[in-house]
Amino acid sequence: MQLYAGIHISDGKCVNPNKAHYLKNHIITSDPVKLALYWQEMGATYLHVVDLDAATMGYPVNGHIVRDIVNAVRIPIQYGGGIRTIKDIDAFLTMGVSRIIIGTQAILNPHFLKEALHIFGTERIVVGIDADNGMVAIEGRARISNFNSITLAQNVENIGVETIVYTDVLCATNMNGPDIENTKEMISRTHLNIIYSGGITSLNDLESLISCGADGAMIGTSLYTNKIRLDEAVMLCKRGGKGE
């Protein structure tokens, strides 16, 4: 299972997205590039970078920080946040980002998703699905759509998408473990590569995701709060579980 080390950017800083950073000033570091280099040093083989301001505002805000990260590290990066146009995608891929996560626009504008897949290919376009009580949250999770998460996953698969980042919003907020049951259902009802995010707090949680067949897992808050050591998590995922 591929592990993705998270970097969540707001106002040029790395923040904990599950701690109302904009109200409580939960800043992890004022230097996201330094954190990216640290994750790389700790064994990360893939970074998951999110521009939280862009996700809310609907256009890239901290692109210069993402560029600095790309220029600093040797490992691939998947980026999400505020992607609304083909020009946005092209700019980040040209910058050196390996994959782009499309969230809101994948739901509101299927034609845009089809066009992006046609131009850039399925390996470079990933759909982000944030599930809140089974329904898809959009616009930086500020609004709940009328789409069921599994139905949406099936729809984007039919369009040609191969990989999704599936986040359980309640698990991400409460940090009481991942939603294994719904992840299993997502896996069983689609043929997508599923990268799970939300509520992962221990190596045992990663074991559970490996066992249920997830293709990847993204951890952010548990790294920021030292609940999980990145080097140990990377080794576990490389082994495919403790028992292997």
Score class of each variant (00 low, 15 high):
residue 44 A to D: 03
residue 145 S to R: 02
residue 126 V to H: 00
residue 169 V to T: 04
residue 172 A to V: 05
residue 238 K to M: 11
residue 121 G to M: 08
residue 126 V to N: 03
residue 180 I to N: 00
residue 29 T to E: 01
residue 103 G to R: 03
residue 160 G to P: 05
residue 1 M to P: 00
residue 200 I to Q: 01
residue 65 I to L: 10
residue 76 P to S: 08
residue 65 I to V: 15
residue 152 L to V: 03
residue 183 T to W: 06
residue 209 L to C: 07
residue 45 T to L: 11
residue 50 V to A: 08
residue 64 H to Y: 12
residue 203 L to M: 11
residue 117 L to D: 10
residue 87 K to V: 15
residue 125 I to R: 02
residue 41 E to M: 04
residue 73 V to N: 04
residue 2 Q to L: 15
residue 213 G to V: 12
residue 211 S to T: 09
residue 40 Q to E: 15
residue 210 I to A: 04
residue 99 R to K: 13
residue 27 I to K: 01
residue 164 I to G: 00
residue 195 I to C: 06
residue 111 H to R: 15
residue 217 A to Q: 00
residue 215 D to I: 04
residue 26 H to R: 06
residue 100 I to S: 02
residue 91 A to Y: 09
residue 138 I to C: 01
residue 196 Y to N: 06
residue 158 N to K: 13
residue 37 L to R: 01
residue 234 V to M: 08
residue 240 G to A: 12
residue 57 M to Y: 10
residue 234 V to H: 04
residue 105 Q to P: 00
residue 175 M to C: 02
residue 234 V to Y: 02
residue 126 V to D: 01
residue 206 L to W: 04
residue 241 G to S: 09
residue 89 I to C: 03
residue 52 L to W: 03
residue 38 Y to K: 13
residue 195 I to F: 06
residue 141 R to N: 02
residue 59 Y to F: 15
residue 22 Y to I: 13
residue 106 A to P: 01
residue 104 T to C: 00
residue 163 T to V: 12
residue 121 G to E: 10
residue 172 A to H: 05
residue 112 F to G: 01
residue 122 T to Q: 10
residue 96 G to V: 11
residue 40 Q to K: 10
residue 57 M to A: 00
residue 2 Q to N: 11
residue 232 E to W: 05
residue 232 E to R: 04
residue 117 L to I: 11
residue 195 I to Y: 03
residue 203 L to W: 06
residue 231 D to G: 05
residue 104 T to A: 06
residue 168 D to E: 06
residue 150 I to D: 01
residue 191 H to S: 11
residue 66 V to H: 05
residue 174 N to K: 13
residue 2 Q to R: 14
residue 229 R to F: 12
residue 117 L to K: 02
residue 13 K to L: 06
residue 195 I to K: 03
residue 142 A to S: 14
residue 174 N to A: 12
residue 197 S to E: 12
residue 37 L to C: 09
residue 76 P to W: 12
residue 136 V to G: 01
residue 233 A to L: 08
residue 155 N to P: 03
residue 170 L to M: 09
residue 95 M to A: 07
residue 195 I to D: 07
residue 118 H to N: 14
residue 82 G to V: 12
residue 80 G to Y: 04
residue 153 A to V: 10
residue 227 K to Y: 03
residue 16 N to I: 12
residue 92 F to T: 08
residue 87 K to D: 12
residue 180 I to V: 15
residue 218 M to S: 02
residue 227 K to Q: 09
residue 144 I to E: 04
residue 174 N to H: 12
residue 2 Q to C: 03
residue 8 H to T: 14
residue 215 D to G: 14
residue 190 T to H: 06
residue 139 E to I: 07
residue 32 P to C: 14
residue 133 N to H: 14
residue 158 N to I: 07
residue 49 V to Y: 02
residue 218 M to I: 15
residue 140 G to Y: 14
residue 242 K to G: 01
residue 13 K to Q: 15
residue 225 T to Y: 06
residue 238 K to S: 10
residue 200 I to S: 00
residue 235 M to I: 14
residue 14 C to V: 14
residue 18 N to W: 03
residue 52 L to C: 00
residue 68 D to W: 03
residue 56 T to V: 15
residue 48 H to W: 04
residue 150 I to M: 04
residue 33 V to H: 01
residue 233 A to G: 07
residue 53 D to A: 08
residue 229 R to I: 11
residue 227 K to S: 10
residue 184 K to Y: 10
residue 217 A to Y: 02
residue 81 G to V: 09
residue 85 T to D: 08
residue 115 E to A: 08
residue 36 A to V: 11
